[in-house]
Nucleic acid binder design. Structure first.
Length: 231
DNA sequence: CGCCAGGTTGTTG
DNA sequence: CAACAACATGGC
């Protein structure tokens, strides 16, 4: 049973997830159209903001924060650059850790302004790992956040690892408990075609399965991969 | 009500 | 380098 087999299982069970969502009219929209085209500048920025806000936080709370930002008309790097950090913190309160995250968003906006010449798409001018290392220099942007921005915002072929990835695949005995982020990322990248669409869908499916079934307290009955899981 | 969520950083041994 | 604390709201 390979990681590709597991991908196929999850995909036929849950269907396409169409990540990353864009918030429209107060709801997160997961559209199949997203895989057909490049993201717009505004979408890339929203994805990056979402990636920062969702750090150790349920998406529902992030959604509320993004709605607040949109309603206030400040979901752009320029607005966030000019908005007092206290006001920003207040808008993103529902996403939790709001003081820290406000500072992180500020840092990210500053990064676009200073390092990317005011255009987030300038990240495309770099190769994957160079772009990644640039993002990782930003305070508040770690591996998963950087990789989410690269994969979901810019379609770079980089596999996103998260807590669910670690939990599901260690429970299955496919990776070891003590594997760290980079080890897990490389494991997936080495066992899959180098294709951003596959990385995109796979990670989204992992989250789906983690949220639905493979929680901290696992719900193993009717699990789509139960027969190949020793847990 | 208690647990936990699509992590990251700073501190300490 | 590993372990641990701090950061915080809201859904179930």
């Amino acid at each position: 049973m390979t990681v590709i087999d597991i991908f196929n299982r999850l995909l036929s069970h849950y269907g396409f997830q169409n990540w990353w969502p864009i918030v429209e009219n107060g709801v997160s929209v997961y559209s199949p159209e997203f895989r057909m085209r490049s993201r717009t500048c505004d979408e890339i920025f929203e994805i990056a903001v979402g990636a920062i806000l969702t750090q150790n936080t349920a998406w529902k709370n992030v959604e509320k924060a993004i709605i607040n930002l949109k309603q206030a008309g400040v979901l752009s790097y320029k607005s966030i650059l000019n908005l007092p950090v206290e006001n920003l913190a207040s808008l993103i309160k529902p996403s939790g850790y709001f003081n820290q995250k406000a500072k992180k968003l500020k840092g990210f906006a500053e990064f676009i302004d200073k390092r990317l010449d005011c255009n987030i798409e300038n990240l495309r001018k770099f190769d994957t790992l160079t772009a990644r290392n640039l993002l990782l220099e930003i305070w508040g942007v770690g591996y998963e956040t950087a990789d989410s921005i690269l994969l979901y915002g810019l379609n770079f072929p980089i596999f996103v690892v998260d807590a669910y990835t670690h939990r599901i695949f260690s429970r299955m005995g496919i990776i070891r408990q003590d594997f760290k982020y980079e080890t897990i990322r490389l494991f997936f990248e080495n066992n899959l075609p180098k294709d951003h669409l596959i990385y995109n869908e796979y990670h989204a499916l992992i989250v789906k399965h983690g949220v639905n079934k493979c929680r901290k307290k696992a719900i193993c009955d009717n699990c789509v991969i139960r027969d190949i899981c020793p847990y």
